[in-house]
Design a protein around this nucleic acid. Structure first.
Lengths: 121, 121
DNA sequence: TTTTTTGTTGCGAAAAAGGAAACATATAAT
DNA sequence: ATTATATGTTTCCTTTTTCGCAACAAAAAA
């Protein structure tokens, strides 16, 4: 999908008319039509205004991909990326994870302790 | 800071010459000079190529604020600590955590997706 | 069907971009 | 310092793009 198509699709998802987006970015409706048809390029300024109207970042508009989200797998990601993803969790989910980790760590400490002090008996 | 300034500052931080960026985006050096001086607008296409050359997203270039990296700022210092603790877990416990986080993240993505695309129905 | 709304196309005028070359400034070498 | 070289800027004219009205076409509503 190219940028022109992205904008058209997103605009339609938001049930906006061409004229509404056009006036928001300050161009004639004919010019806007050309934009969606790929007959005239969007300026960065216009893109930013459109993104603002759509409540999205410019990157999200540029890389828009209407397809369903794909699964996430942390395992193969770098630690930095893992952190970034964990930060994205909702507050309560993150709480759950941390509590679980606390339990696991506590558990491990006991396990290690017995391993070292009791197994020798 | 405006976009033209951002690009200039970032280019200089990366020790690139105007001519190098110019040829990467396919314009004459004089045109590129005009871009940095704000005498001619960047196209979205050019912005994307520049972002690629700079190893940044277009949003990062647009919203660049001069302040240096934030590899690990105080704010997410706790996150680093969190990761350090997770690394200490036994392999199978870590697997469990990761799988759970994966599920939560995937879940959240779907939730957000439906929020945006289906909730309006 | 007949209206009304929404989107597209044609066209001359106006604005912007292209790029070669002259010019200016900074950096390096002698 | 002076000269050379590398880097960045400006001028000037040509080419390309955009402008926006108005006519046109298509779709939706009445």
């Amino acid at each position: 999908m190219n940028l022109a198509d992205n904008i058209k699709v997103i605009r339609e998802e938001k049930s906006l008319k061409q004229i509404e987006v056009a006036s928001h970015i300050g161009v004639d409706k004919s010019a806007y039509s050309k934009i969606e048809k790929g007959l005239r390029a969007l300026t960065i300024d216009e893109l930013q205004k459109i993104a603002q109207l759509f409540n999205m970042t410019t990157d999200q508009v540029i890389n828009y991909d209407g397809k369903m989200p794909k699964e996430v797998t942390l395992e193969d990601k770098t630690a930095v990326e893992q952190m970034r993803l964990i930060q994205q969790l909702d507050e309560d989910d993150r709480q759950t994870i941390f509590k679980l980790i606390d339990k696991m760590l506590t558990n491990k400490k006991f396990k290690d302790f017995f391993q070292k002090n009791v197994a020798a008996l």
